[in-house]
Amino acid sequence: MESTLVRIHNLAKTFGEGETRVEAVRGLDLDLARGEIVLVMGPSGSGKTTFLSMLGGLLRVSAGEIWVNGTDIAALGERELPPFRASTMGFIFQDFNLIAALSARENVEVALNIGGQSGGTARERARGLLESLGTGDRLDFPIEKLSGGEKQRVAIARAVANRPMLILADEPTANLDSHHGAETMRLLRTLAKEEGVTVVIVSHDQRLREIADRVLWLEDGQFKALQALARDPVCGMLIDPAQAPAELESDGETLYFCSSGCRRQYEEERLVAASQ
């Protein structure tokens, strides 16, 4: 089996025409290995969601190719995409996006039904998944009765129900407290390393760097090398040195800050340290 699951070549997406034309994503090239966890970060409006939507076959590309397990999904027709998504991909959303009218088990079961499994087989698989994720005692609970962490576990169970090769997660920890956020990270890590599922996460959450094999920085619709980015020594934010609002020469090294406030704080802390 080829170790590369996803190959993206010269991917571009343009919205609008003429004066309203916006290049949301341009010239993206990327390979993702099986079992790899890739975290895509970047400022708001950088094209992260557009990238994730195209990778998930939910948004048509303007140019380029997206090969997933040997299939160019950019070339698939509207009739072929849904079953491809059902069998190959799983989605995890910031707002969980569970169907409120269904119970926890039914939310997972409905994904299995769409993927082609039905009846007792689907029911048992849904139950097994939820039990393995620690929500076995919430099988028939309505969604509104579940905590945020439980909802995310149901969402993860739904995402993996059809044994996908690729999981696309949009801000999976954003609505969770630190405990449940860490638990979600652990589950994603387990999926990648034990099941060989490739996980692409789009997030602002720095905590997710802990589980990522690679962190990509998407800005102005293009991936930028992280080594070319500098980290604010005060708040830890990644910044493009060319556009850094503040910088400081220190011991022959240039430090870059996200704001003049961070630079001022840094200088004050240095003064305090020097006086001691």
């Binding site: 849904p82 998504r85 409905v110």
Partner: peptide
């Protein structure tokens, strides 16, 4: 609407 969008994303065909 949100439910329909989720189901479509998960793989439900337009016909479904």
């Amino acid at each position: 609407i949100r439910d329909y969008a989720v189901l479509r994303a998960v793989g439900l065909r337009v016909r479904g």
